[in-house]
Design a protein around this nucleic acid. Structure first.
Lengths: 353, 353
DNA sequence: CAAATTTTGGCAACCGGTTGACAAGCGAGC
DNA sequence: GCTCGCTTGTCAACCGGTTGCCAAAATTTG
């Protein structure tokens, strides 16, 4: 017969933290309960279920908690509930300044609402990304995927487990925050057309990038509208060096104005063209995307279609936090505005020769 | 008399996860134990204490775990042990590209060793920083402080709780990773001296910045050695706009070459000087610090003393991870090399008039 | 004033691992 | 064959909260 070894112990107040040894470990609800003269479960309720206990007891407990400098142990809470007060953010590439804004926006929002941000990167690899996402899923309450590279299906599968918000891409059935490229692109093309350009090149990003395809579509549409020719060029990498490599192709294309998938490509392209004594913007106008940090360091400073990435980060985090509180936003897709930032790298085409 | 309600239950195998409902929750050691036909605690030992169980049982358990796609629940593990497989990183300012390298290096290292990185920023405020650090301390196994703004004492207090590594500052009794500014500064001053400069200005960063003071000392020392004059100017903020604001003061100082606390100041300074038709480097040479992302976007590209921040992030993370495994590194301070990156913003002083 | 109803607090069983203590199993040595 | 010592697995008590259920207390109602 199995007998409890020590009935008194079972009936006692429960574990008591050993405050003796240098205050190492912090106070627990059991300590608070003892000081306040109530049951631990009452403490738990007072601290997490507002209105569940009487105002008097509430005050008593809060006082005791303050006195002991009590803070909940996030792990102890996470174990039975699954709630971790942590949000995950996976970016395609930490080196890429496009994501700095996202990280910053998300971090600020999350911290302001007493959550913590976990960061991971996928090195632009769908497989790494999926692994990172799965790993994170066990630890976070929700996940932000910035410019994810994995399939729609994988994203939806993740979203079935816990709330997921996608930035910079539209996935059916998953809340998304996307800069609406079209407005900015239309402005850019209109500006180029007004400056005498007739043939526009678009330098594409990675083939997996949903946003790159989207921008190309936007460029095509806007060009049709303005009766301009649009040609598409591929890049090896969406980086400065990728931009340098594509310079030759740009010249060969006969275009007098170029939009690039992102600012890094634009900067690399501009550097290489200038090295070949091609004057920007007199002979070729260059327009980037994103308005990343440093886009205005160049000479001439880069004209670019600004995507408010920090805002995307903020919005994505808010969406997630709201969802966790049961506030469902009806709109599956949140579009944030883009706009043309007109600087020196685009302008009137000088007659050649 | 307190009687156990259900003796059989107490003697049973223990909790069993409900795999019925859509495979929601993942397998536990209890599931693995059942499949392998052993006790849960044996599973726990097999998976975390190598050599504690026989090779035969080990294989049996590993097989069962693989079959069930078992993964430990980090919270369940963290609760009794305190180990979380998570490292914290606090940077002074996420916007500041100096830290991009740190974040990147730390993230990569931590992930490679199966840890996760938690990120927070202090907005350059000692109080916010301390709050963030305290908050993190409850959740992480160790903490990296990049360019901390709080007192030495507070840092030491944190370090008494859990392993802490500091980047970009030296704190007695706490392991630190610091770029050794002197080598790079010496190179820079030598180069400037060789180019005919005699009066050098240093634009300082925030007064709380240990590294700013250190760099100023380095500049002074190197100038004495080369028999140059060194003057110090203050900046309002260590940013591009802070750099613009200090331009007037730089001109007034009569210096023909300027080192700035960081690259952002240098870039802002250069923009403002150029706007005032002061040719760089013909009339004034500019040298930054850090070689941040975008330092080579400017025209002329920025000469700068490179601090390998990604390496700092990597080293700090490694130090921390080693410490957690009981591998103590004897050296309290790890110095990483700095070097002059000579670009176009510094050079020979043209005779004025 | 008693009965019905609503609050409020306590009990105890979890969540999923870890670990000290201990006993069974096993081979070696005498 | 028996004792000793070492390896290996089991038991049960945690870690620190959360929560369903129930009863006591307080409040409303008839």
């Amino acid at each position: 017969m199995t007998e409890p070894k020590n009935p008194e112990a079972a009936a006692s107040t429960g574990p008591v933290s050993r405050k003796g040894l240098g205050g190492k470990s912090s106070a627990t609800i059991y300590d608070v309960a003892r000081v306040a003269g109530v049951n631990p479960s009452t403490v738990s309720r007072a601290l997490s279920k507002p209105g569940r206990v009487s105002a008097k007891t509430q005050k008593l407990i809060e006082h005791a908690a303050a006195e002991l400098n009590y803070h909940v142990n996030p792990f102890a809470r996470a174990l039975p509930t699954g709630r971790t007060s942590t949000l995950g953010l996976i970016v395609a590439d930490i080196t890429n300044p496009t994501f700095f804004g996202v990280i910053r926006g998300a971090e600020a929002t999350v911290t302001a609402r007493d959550y913590t941000l976990m960061l991971a990167e996928s090195s632009e690899s769908p497989a790494t990304e999926l692994t990172a996402a799965r790993r994170m899923m066990t630890t976070v309450d929700g996940l932000i995927l910035a410019s994810p590279r994995m399939d729609d299906d994988n994203i939806r599968a993740l979203a079935r487990g816990k709330p997921v918000v996608v930035i910079n891409r539209e996935v059916d059935g998953v809340p998304c925050v996307v800069p609406d490229a079209n407005t900015g692109i239309a402005e850019a093309i209109r500006s180029l057309a007004a400056n005498g350009h007739r043939r526009i090149a678009y330098v594409a990003g990675p083939p997996e990038s949903w946003m790159s395809r989207r921008r190309w579509e936007g460029v095509q549409t806007a060009c049709e509208w303005s009766r301009l020719e649009a040609v598409r060029l591929e890049s090896s990498r969406p980086t400065v060096s990728g931009g340098r490599e594509v310079a030759r192709g740009v010249l060969a294309s006969g275009a007098t104005a170029v939009l690039t998938y992102n600012d890094l490509l634009a900067i690399g392209l501009m550097q290489e063209l200038q090295a070949a004594a091609v004057v920007v913007p007199d002979r070729i106008s260059i327009v980037g995307f994103d308005d990343i940090f440093g886009a205005d360091f160049t000479t001439p400073p880069l004209t670019t279609v600004r995507s408010p990435m920090a805002e995307c980060g903020t919005e994505a985090a808010s969406l997630l936090l709201d969802a966790l509180q049961g506030i469902e936003h009806p709109a599956a897709i949140l579009r944030v505005e883009t706009e043309l930032v007109l600087r020196g790298s685009s302008g009137r085409l000088l007659p050649s020769g």
